[in-house]
């Protein structure tokens, strides 16, 4: 049995320690928002936060996580410290009409939230420079717009 903290809840799991986190989230914890895209850390559809850092969950063995806290798309809007960023990113994504097929978008949103959270005063270009997710629908122009909207909103709302 292995202990794993996901979205603030501690789970005890019967799982081989080398199992990628992605499959534990999807198949054992019922958290389907993290998507399987490449299984090789190339596309970012499976992006989650591990102790605040953006991680491609298909590349992280569940046995290597230890005490660290995993946050997925399902609960990112309730996470203390980044809830406002998460809400702003999601709102901007809707406003800019980013999703087409939508499959890569939870990963894109998680990567964007994580990137902004490292430094809220970053420029739009600095945030975009950290995003290497693949979207085959070609939503990149809309992503650029949405990141701009997010940063404007966060700065406007800042105390």
């Amino acid at each position: 049995m292995m202990a794993l903290t996901v979205n603030g809840t501690q789970h005890r799991l019967e799982v081989a320690p080398e199992t990628p986190l992605l499959w534990v989230l999807r198949d054992q914890l019922g958290l389907g928002g993290s998507k399987f895209g490449c299984g090789a850390g190339l596309c970012g559809a499976c992006s989650v936060h591990v102790d605040g850092a953006v991680v491609r969950s298909c590349q992280m063995a569940v046995g290597d996580i230890g005490e660290r806290a995993v946050v997925t798309i399902e609960a990112v809007q309730e996470q203390p410290g980044i809830a406002d960023i998460a809400a702003a990113v999601v709102a901007a994504w809707v406003q800019a009409g980013v999703p087409q097929c939508g499959y890569c978008q939870p990963g894109f949103v998680m990567a964007t939230i994580g990137s902004i959270a490292t430094d809220r005063s970053q420029s739009r270009e600095a945030v975009l420079g950290q995003l290497s997710n693949i979207c085959r629908c070609g939503s990149y122009d809309a992503v650029r717009e949405a990141v701009g909207i997010t940063l404007d909103r966060l700065r406007h709302d800042a105390p």
Binding site: G32, G33, S34, T72, I73, E74, Q77, V90, W93, V94, Q95, G97, V98, P99, G102, Q105, P106, V109
Partner: peptide, 13 residues
Amino acid sequence: TRPDARPKATGVA
């Protein structure tokens, strides 16, 4: 605003 935009952005879709 596409009704599927928010569900897709939040992993609900």
